[in-house]
């Protein structure tokens, strides 16, 4: 049983990566955490300048999994009802009918979430947290799987709202995108149009299978040494003097669930410190806050490098 499951997972990973490589040229350290987050059942925050393939990445993911894809461009006048949907008066039936908003999809690309008002953002966060929305006093379940890929432009802060720290915690991973590597960019210029490439994408799995994968990932074993390693790193982030707020136990749990997904995709049913090491930055950097408000990524990286691996 365990064996067949593992083969499925690694085959899924290979096919998915192949699909992604066909459309977008992003390095592995960007794609891996995103794929792991999807398998672990979490949401993704992509940070980077516009025009480096964030939307393409999200769309390719959605198409590869044969899920429904919707995109919401966040602006400061966007109302919660624009996201969730609203009750509309139907004169023919003589009653209100609920019109579903763009949130009702398997893959939602929430573009530039820091542009919207905290009210709309909190509506999105509630949906991310619970997997359902409340409209007019009714609770409506969202589709399964439900993955939000949010983007945030870190360069431009004019006319933006700060995304609160608690909101960042809702995202399982945060990935920073940069310009593609020179050869990848050249290949991009010489290749076909992105839309054309996207059209060629064949789904590699179904939503149902993804849900099964998620269940399998949750069952991946975390041994005592791996847990201890996670603890040591998290502890290192807490005790350092420059840190204002270290990684919480929830952050560690999120990190471990990501590592589980990675182990599964790697064909293992146990977590290695390697999984944790690779995923430390996307899982922890946005959950550790420094005194001076700077980027905690180098610090998390240093903590991981310095922490001894329990053998």
């Amino acid at each position: 049983m365990a064996t067949t499951r593992s083969i499925d997972a690694s085959a899924f990973r290979a096919a998915l990566l192949q699909n992604l490589a066909r459309v977008v040229s992003l390095p592995a350290h960007v794609i891996d955490p995103v794929v792991c987050a999807v398998v672990a059942g979490g949401h993704v925050l992509l940070e980077g300048i516009p025009g480096i393939g964030k939307t393409l990445l999200a769309r390719t993911l959605a198409m590869s999994i044969d899920g429904q894809f919707r995109r919401i461009q966040f602006t400061n006048d966007l109302m919660p009802s624009d996201v969730v949907g609203t009750a509309v008066w139907r004169p023919d039936t003589g009653r209100f009918a609920f019109v579903r908003g763009p949130l009702f999809a398997n893959f939602v690309l929430a573009d530039e979430i820091n542009r919207t008002s905290p009210r709309t953002l909190s509506c999105l966060l509630e949906a991310m947290e619970n997997g359902r929305v409340s409209v007019e006093g009714r609770t409506v379940e969202l589709g399964q799987p439900f993955v939000v890929l949010a983007t945030r432009n870190p360069i431009e802060f004019q006319g933006t709202y700060p995304v609160p720290e608690a909101a960042l915690d809702r995202f399982l991973v945060r990935v920073e995108l940069d310009y593609p590597a020179p050869d990848a960019e050249l290949a991009l210029y010489m290749g076909h149009d992105a839309e054309a490439r996207l059209a060629e994408i064949q789904p590699v799995t179904t939503c149902q299978e993804l849900l099964a994968l998620r269940a399998a990932a949750a069952a991946v074993h975390v041994g005592a040494p791996a847990a201890e390693y996670a603890y040591r790193v998290v502890q290192a982030t807490r005790t350092h003097a420059e840190v204002q707020l270290g990684a919480s136990p929830r952050a560690a749990l999120a990190w471990l669930s990501l590592a589980r997904a990675r182990a599964l995709l790697d064909g293992r049913d146990y977590v290695l410190p390697d999984d944790l090491k690779v995923l430390a930055l996307p899982a922890l950097a946005h959950r550790v806050f420094l005194q001076d408000g700077g980027s905690s990524a180098p610090f998390v990286q240093a903590a991981v490098q310095a922490t001894a691996v329990p053998l």
């Binding site: 074993h221 041994g223 040494p225 791996a226 049913d269 146990y270 290695l272």
Partner: peptide, 12 residues
């Protein structure tokens, strides 16, 4: 061998 002994689920 180390990986198997230390990180795997005891039953596996």
């Amino acid at each position: 061998a180390h990986e198997r002994a230390r990180y795997m689920k005891p039953g596996d």
